[in-house]
Design a protein around this nucleic acid. Structure first.
Length: 522
RNA sequence: GCCCCGGUGGUGUAGCCCGGUCAAGCAUGCGGGCCUCUCGAGCCCGCGACCCGGGUUCAAAUCCCGGCCGGGGCACCA
């Protein structure tokens, strides 16, 4: 039954329930809470510059961007570049790579702020807390404090120091009297809190590591929850969108705002996004790049935005995919095939088709061709006429023409006793010399109908004396080699094309004798 | 050990707050068919889920309790 007949039958059966083709389903985000309480929605992106943005970070960026658009609000890019830890280090190039990623994604931010420029502000407010008796300088050893005080809920001796004592210790933190690990400022969130994770958390600590932007200018650094408690207020953030792993930070921020008498902001959370198989954390990626196991930050195995761009994934596709995940608190698994489906929809109508034969090859000799040359025109796209066609002239010498075809097809060719070279001719197998990978065959005509009647495979082919080497970097980092048809010579960098029966690729480098591509998907 | 939070087909999501219209929608995936000189696109058909057990109710995916499973926090990381 043809599709037309099927449709008619369906109409006959249920005339009212014919599904409309091309129905569009727009994914809608739930509204932000309490928008009416604020004059204007202000949100922020808070990347830690340890590497380029990956899919998880992109989710955060896209969600913020969508909400800001939805409410005509403002979005601030705030580099959360406090000193970090030994394992979590700032990568200087990351500042730029993050911007690059955001631009690629089409995320508009209205202002850029660096946490590392704001140390004096944090000092000021920390001092204020000390003065008001809401914080204290703790000289306990970290491990001791954890076991002896945090778990038991018993206050440590430093908690009862006077304001004067605390300020004195604070000065000694700043002037270098105390070294790394010797003193911290703790907020008096409460030792009696039910959740041990919240008890008198550290808000300031000493780090003598060099910072890529401000060098050795500061030795006392704030911790995430403190710096955000201050900045979310000072920068006028109204809605804080964060992963559910940071829910504890909500509580800490609220405690600090209460001490200052500042209004509470709105929080929105979403679940964790995880990857099948190996998770590539940025610190791990950095290590693998240093050891030359990865090709760089744009290696497809990092799943960085840069790497997706390199593969020819469209930002719109990624955005659509990320929005399809919604805002649920459930942890989700990243599903590449879903992303590819969105992307395929976008690139399929725009990607010209080319012949490509991957290694290993078979040399095909077709005997008995009646013409001395064959000239064919092959359209670049089956559905889009405007792409035009390329002309291929096949030289026939002594009735014989030679082609390169993929070894992959040999089984089906042998099974059917022949095959069709797409757009060209049909042949019948005479002999396959396995060791030499040579297939001897006999010309069987030009008619497609014949090939169909024989249910021949229709395969891509390349002329051995008129082809160009192609290398394709696959998503798993492996390299696929092969040859492309002569028309590939005209390809330009950044073009997304389809190698028929192989997949969509983005052209990354073109030289006289070779083309390098990145594989997008099938 | 202590504290949170989740659990709808292979994957993701809608529905859950305000119980009935949900014998559960959509997307992706998978299987089959049509179409096509690509294993792409398009079209059609199909597969496949409310974690378990109680309770409330005329009625529960939706409310309550318990269990199980999963995630997270308990860093002088973000």
């Amino acid at each position: 039954m043809s599709s037309e007949e099927q449709k008619k039958l369906l109409e006959k059966l249920s005339p009212l329930e014919v599904p409309k083709a091309g129905k569009k389903e727009e994914k809608k985000l739930p509204p932000l809470p309490n928008v009416e309480r604020w004059r204007k929605v202000v949100m922020r992106l808070a990347p830690f510059p340890s590497g380029p943005l990956h899919i998880g970070n992109a989710r955060m960026a896209v969600l913020n961007d969508e909400y800001v658009k939805m409410y005509s609000g403002k979005l601030l890019l705030v580099y959360d570049d406090t000193i970090g830890s030994e394992e979590k280090r700032i990568v200087p190039e990351a500042y730029e790579m993050i911007k690059e990623g955001l631009n690629w994604l089409g995320v508009k931010y209205h202002k850029t702020i660096y946490k590392s420029d704001r140390l004096p502000i944090f000092y000021k407010y920390c001092e204020e807390l000390l003065k008001r008796g809401h914080a204290y300088v703790c000289l306990c050893d970290a491990e001791e404090w954890r076991t002896k005080y945090k778990i038991t809920g018993i206050p440590c001796p430093h908690r009862s120091q006077s304001v004067e004592e605390n300020l004195e210790h604070w000065d000694k933190m700043l002037d270098g009297t105390y070294g790394e690990g010797e003193a911290v400022v703790r907020i008096k969130s409460g030792m009696d809190l039910e959740d041990p994770a919240l008890r008198d958390h550290v808000i300031m600590r000493i780090s003598e590591r060099e910072h890529p932007r401000v060098g050795m200018k500061y030795r006392v650094w704030p911790l995430l929850e403190f710096s955000w408690a201050i900045d979310d207020h000072l920068l006028g953030i109204t809605h804080i969108l964060r992963g559910k792993d940071l829910i504890k930070e909500d509580r800490m921020e609220q405690i600090i705002w209460k001490f200052f008498g500042w209004p509470i902001r709105e929080f929105v959370h979403y679940g964790k996004i995880s990857f099948k198989g190996a998770v590539l954390s940025k610190s791990k990626a950095r290590m693998l790049i240093e050891r030359k196991i990865l090709r760089g930050w744009d290696d497809p195995r990092t799943w960085s935005l840069q790497s997706l761009a390199k593969r020819g994934i469209r930002p719109e596709a990624l955005r659509e995919y990320l929005l399809s995940l919604g805002l649920s608190l459930t942890d989700v698994e990243f599903d590449p095939s879903s992303l590819y489906a969105y992307n395929r929809r976008l690139i399929d109508p725009e990607a010209p088709r080319y012949f490509f034969v991957r290694e290993p090859y078979v040399l095909l000799k077709v005997h008995g061709i009646p013409d001395s040359t064959i000239s064919v025109q092959l359209p670049y796209h089956p559905n889009v006429k405007k792409f035009g066609a390329r002309t291929i002239n096949v030289r026939v010498i002594g009735g014989i023409a030679k082609f390169v075809i993929p070894m992959q097809d040999i089984e089906s060719i042998m099974g059917k006793g022949g095959a069709r070279l797409k757009g060209l001719l049909n042949f019948e197998v005479v002999k396959f010399v396995k060791e030499k990978r040579i297939l001897i065959s006999k010309f069987q005509g030009y008619d497609v109908g014949f090939a169909k009647s024989k249910s021949y495979s229709i395969i891509q082919w390349v002329l051995p004396d008129k082809c160009i080497d192609v290398e394709i970097i696959m998503p798993d980092g492996t390299l696929v080699k092969g040859v492309g048809e002569y028309a590939c010579k005209h390809l330009t960098v950044d073009q997304v094309i389809q190698f028929e029966r192989f997949g969509f690729v983005r052209v990354d480098r073109v030289s006289e004798d070779k083309i390098l591509c990145y594989y997008a998907h099938d």
